[in-house]
Amino acid sequence: MEKKRFVPRSFLIEVLVLAGIFTLVQYLIVSGLLNEYYQINLSSMCINIILAVSLNLINGFTGQLSLGHAGFMAVGAYAAVVVTTIYSQPFILGLLAACLAAGLAGLIIGVPTLRLKGDYLAIATLGFGEIIRVILQNIDFIGGPAGILGIPRYSTWPWLFGLTIFTIVIIVNLINSSYGRAIISVREDEVASELMGINTTNYKVLAFVIGALFAGLAGALYAHYFYIIKPSTFNFLKSFDILVMVVLGGLGSTTGAVIAAIFVTMLTAALQTFPAIRMVLYAVTLVVVMVYRPQGLMGNKEWGRRTWGRIWGEKNEPLANK
């Protein structure tokens, strides 16, 4: 039990598969085989995965219904663009600024609002998200309602892919730890959790800040892919979009969030051919899925190393999981 163990085979396989995907796509892009349309969707997919996985930390694992994720995305996007475009600093500084600013916004909003529960929290976060948007609209320095144009396209495939994996790894690591268990206990029964000696407020704020921080990161990647940002992009409908991915995937399942983010991006792309009826079909899909599978695609199950391990015939159980 306590003997030093070798790196499990499934971990190596994961790394190999990811490296394979990365190299393949990179090759397709460089060789020009992947046209702009596919590239855009692939980039949106990465950004959506980051958004869904980070919102799932707040809504799915901590059980705190937040409807303001687009607000944090906006804070990140604007912070990064101010650094890279207005002050002409390198991309990496922009990304750091985005994370910092969005995390800080998460802290400022989270501390007072996380006292609220359920629907009340949902509408308070919705309100804050909208307030962020209105404030951005009224700052002339960052272009007011028209936003900022001519942002350099720094979000290349290596950045997008790398940061998507980074987000997933950080959040999975957090969840499979004592911190994660405390966070999940808040979702399961806040009163019992508090009485087991867990400072529930701290853990709620922690999850909220980390979630906001990654939303900011996604915002920065978004801004540096699509050349332009304006406040109206980050309205509450955008927050709903992210929430939809999380709920479709299954609250409390990172695997589900990733799959749903990919699915929703592809659905949106596929429906672009029918612009008139696109949103109608989207809405119908949403209602039908909820009516027939309200727990979402994955429920709160994961496909983890265990599943892969079983597929590859591996015996040893990962340490951190049950």
């Binding site: 690591n173 730890s177 004592s178 911190y179 268990r181 999940i184 959790s193 049950k322």
Partner: peptide
């Protein structure tokens, strides 16, 4: 009032959270 939807082991591990000998950085 158990933590209903998670495992029996996790229920006890949650109560042991103060004993965790690692910080956030080590976790991540």
């Amino acid at each position: 009032r158990l933590f209903k939807d998670i495992s029996v082991l996790d229920n006890v591990r949650i109560a042991l959270h103060k004993d965790a000998p690692y910080g956030l950085l080590k976790t991540l």
